[in-house]
Amino acid sequence: MMANILITGCSSGFGYLSALDLARRGERVFATMRNLVRGQALTKIAISERLALTTHTLDVTDPMSVRRCVAEVLELGGKIDVLVNNAGYAQRGPIETLSDEEIHRQFDTNVTGIMRMVRTVVPHMRARNAGTIINLSSLSGLTGVPYEGAYSASKHAVEAISQALRFELAATSIRVLLIEPGAFETGFVNNAPVAADFNAAHPLWDEYQRFWSAAAQLTGGSRADPQAVVDAIRRAVIDPETPFRQLVGADVEFAVSLQEAAGLADLGPTIREILHLPATGKH
């Protein structure tokens, strides 16, 4: 049977790709985004391929927008079977350079945004005792990634929220699932703002550049095709046996196996060595 699927953040990246993927396998997709103008490409494809896909305005940082959008989707579709909390971005820059405003915006979108969606959608799912909530976390949700400290903190929060929510919904038939992608070619990095106060005069500037080019080596080249994440989302939608966590990408698997091996010990020195960054001074 066709499922009604609401996906946040569909103007690009995993949201865009997943919306098409799920619609093409016959699901009813409500593709949402902050700025509807950026949904024209999706709408065009939907019309030409006769897909059950419509685009809707949704700003997860605006409670009114969330309420309006969910009401609209329920009116059109009668129910929401699947909520994919995909909207998010990465605030970059060393911790010491981030402004209150930058930190707040990061958490408002990536963390509070998901909680607003949950608060608005779960009561409907509870009423039907059915539904699936898929939260897009990240490699950064499993280990603290340098120069992405705020983003890592927000994704750690997504991990914690997902664990708590799963526990709280255990008595219902509502599933809560996590997906942890590594780095993929989706334009995500181009959409990642860098802290306004971080510039070439900062002592970490050079290492920052070297870190990202070295880290890119860990994705395993061909594995960085975002299709793997699209497949994971599809699996979470259609396969009741899907595990709570899906780690997607060679870099995530490696980072998680390193962290598991290290237990609670600091992985920093190992990561520095793997990325050929100079060893740290004394702590």
Partner: peptide, 10 residues
């Protein structure tokens, strides 16, 4: 190489 790096943590 990755497994050897991981094993060093073990």
């Amino acid at each position: 190489r990755k497994v050897l790096q991981t094993n060093r943590e073990r």
